[in-house]
Design a protein around this nucleic acid. Structure first.
Length: 142
DNA sequence: GCCAACGTTGGC
DNA sequence: GCCAACGTTGGC
């Protein structure tokens, strides 16, 4: 089992849209590193759903329900393999408390998380201990 | 709205 | 192959 984080702007496609749809075709990725991460996803992998730009925070948990296949919105020339791919994700649950970027930066155990180290990457791997920490922070304790 | 980070493009 | 210019992402 691997863990990932995907970003989306809530005004464009937020957790709300995701749960309404039930399944998201994760398209629009046009960065090679992010694409490579999509290719490495396996069915059942768990995915943190992050809202960027507006109130940046991890807001929910999802899982991979279909592995990478060619992005249907891109025309692939005959004989060539697709450059861009999509995966399909389904929601598991909303976090009780969103884990803000501020809270992530304040947590020493998350000092090396890709979210901070590579702030512009939109699909990234998350280490198991980082994943646990974020879920812990997302579980209301007060 | 500003700006830092960084990926891409194109001239040479 | 280098690098300047430019565009995009995303935090603040």
């Amino acid at each position: 089992m691997n863990y990932w984080l995907v970003k989306s702007e809530p005004d464009v496609y937020g957790w709300h849209h995701f749960t309404q749809q039930g399944i998201a075709v994760w398209d629009g990725v046009r960065n090679y590193q992010a694409r490579n991460n999509l290719n490495a996803m396996r069915t059942g992998d768990q995915v943190l759903f992050y809202h960027s730009v507006t109130n940046p925070a991890v807001v929910g948990l999802a899982r991979v329900v279909r592995e990478a296949y060619p992005d249907p919105t891109v025309t692939v020339e005959p004989g060539k393999s697709a450059t861009w791919v999509v995966v399909e994700l389904a929601p598991i649950m909303k976090l009780e408390t969103p884990v803000s970027l501020r809270a992530i930066k304040a947590e020493p155990l998350l000092a090396n998380i890709g979210l901070i180290k590579q702030s512009r990457l939109s699909v990234m791997p998350i280490r198991p201990n980082e994943f646990e920490q974020i879920l812990r922070l997302g579980t209301a304790t007060e």
